[in-house]
C-alpha cells in the first residue's frame, strides 16, 4: 500500500481530465465541490492543463479546454480520458467502507447481495484483508426506522431501557438527529411523553416502531446542557478500566494512587459505576456523592443480615 502523501496538483490534474470528459459543460463551482477544493485552485489547474499534451505541443497536440463562461469542456485529451486505477490504500478504504455499510442496511434490502458481490470481487482483485466483523451492536432495523423517520419528519414509538435508573419505559419521540460520543451513538429527540427534548442511546432502545403521524412544526433543541458538578476520583487499582470508563483524556498518566477530576452530570450513574468497580476507584469529592456510595452499599449489605 502506497504511503499517503498530501494532495498533489499532478494527481488532481490526472483525475480532472476523465472527470471533465464525462461531465462536459460542468460548472466551475461543481468541480470545486466535487474535488473538495477552491474555485481558484481549479482555475489554476485548468490553466496548467491547457499547456499539456503530446510532444510537439502545437495546438494539434495540446489539450483543448474552454472555461471562460464558467462552464468547462474539454477536447483532445483522449490519452488521459480514462480514470486512473485505484491504489491499494484507496481500495482498502472502500472495502472497509462497504463492510460498514453492509452492517447498516437491512438484510432484506436488494442492495445487500449486490454489495456482498462487489466486496468479494474487490477482495480477490486487491488481495487486501477485509475486517472480520463490523458490528455496532445496534440492530439495523433500529437505525433504519429512526433514520427514515428523521427524513420524513415522523414519530416513532420506542421502548427504552434507562440505564442509571434501571427502568424500561415506552415513549413517543420525534427523532431529530444522530450523533456519537465516545463509543456510543445517540438520537437527539423531542419526547412527547415527557414533553421535552431528550437524548437516547441507540443500543438501549429495545424496540422501535414507526408511527404514521407527520409532524409539521420544526423543532430544535437550543437549551444549554445542565452544568453538572466536579468529581474527584482516586485510582486504587485497575487504572486502564477506570480511565476508559471515565473517559480520561490524558490516560497515560493514570496509575494506581493517582487522583483525577471529571465533570459529572448524573450522580446515580456515578454511584452505580463506582460500586461496580468494587473499590478500585474511590470518590474523593464531592462528599455527598462519596457518602451516597457508602449508604447505598450499606443498604445492599443489609439484605444479607
Amino acid at each position: 500500500m502506497v504511503k499517503i502523501i498530501g494532495d498533489s496538483q499532478v494527481a488532481r490534474l490526472l483525475d480532472l481530465v476523465p472527470y471533465l470528459t464525462l461531465n462536459q459543460g460542468v460548472p466551475l463551482d461543481k468541480i470545486a465541490e466535487d474535488f473538495s477544493t477552491s474555485k481558484s485552485e481549479i482555475l489554476a489547474d485548468l490553466n496548467t492543463l491547457w499547456m499539456c499534451g503530446l510532444p510537439g505541443y502545437t495546438p494539434l497536440e495540446l489539450i483543448d479546454l474552454s472555461f471562460d463562461t464558467g462552464f468547462v469542456s474539454i477536447r483532445n485529451a483522449e490519452i488521459l480520458s480514462n480514470p486512473r486505477k485505484l491504489t491499494s490504500a484507496e481500495v482498502g478504504a472502500i472495502i472497509i467502507g462497504l463492510s460498514i455499510i453492509s452492517d447498516f442496511i437491512p438484510e432484506v434490502s436488494n442492495h445487500t447481495s449486490s454489495i456482498k458481490d462487489l466486496l468479494s470481487r474487490l477482495l480477490t482483485r486487491s488481495q487486501l484483508s477485509v475486517p472480520e466483523i463490523i458490528s455496532t451492536g445496534i440492530p439495523s432495523e433500529t437505525r433504519n426506522i429512526i433514520y427514515s423517520a428523521m427524513k420524513m419528519n415522523q414519530n416513532v414509538k420506542i421502548s427504552y431501557h434507562s440505564y442509571s435508573r434501571d427502568e424500561i419505559s415506552t415513549r413517543d419521540i420525534i427523532p431529530l438527529s444522530l450523533s456519537q460520543e465516545g463509543n456510543s451513538e445517540y438520537v437527539h429527540s423531542y419526547c412527547h411523553t415527557t414533553q421535552d427534548f431528550r437524548v437516547f442511546r441507540l443500543d438501549r432502545i429495545l424496540e422501535v416502531r414507526k408511527s404514521e403521524k407527520v409532524i409539521n412544526a420544526s423543532l430544535s433543541d437550543d437549551r444549554n446542557v445542565e452544568d453538572g458538578f466536579e468529581l474527584r476520583i482516586k485510582i486504587v487499582s485497575n487504572a486502564r478500566k477506570i480511565s476508559e470508563i471515565f473517559q480520561v483524556k490524558d490516560s497515560t498518566k493514570m496509575h494506581a494512587g493517582v487522583e483525577f477530576n471529571r465533570r459529572a452530570y448524573n450522580s446515580e450513574w456515578i454511584v452505580r459505576t463506582v460500586c461496580s468497580l468494587r473499590g478500585s476507584a474511590v470518590i474523593v469529592e464531592p462528599l455527598d456523592t462519596r457518602k451516597m456510595v457508602a449508604t447505598r452499599a450499606q443498604k445492599a449489605l443489609n439484605l444479607y443480615s
Binding site: P18, L22, P83, K85, L86, T87, A89, E90, A93
Partner: peptide
C-alpha cells in the same frame, strides 16, 4: 481515511 477515500472518489467520479 478521509484523504485516501477522497482520492478514490475523485477517480470514481470520472468513471461513470
Amino acid at each position: 481515511l478521509d484523504d485516501v477515500a477522497q482520492k478514490a472518489m475523485r477517480k470514481l467520479s470520472g468513471l461513470a
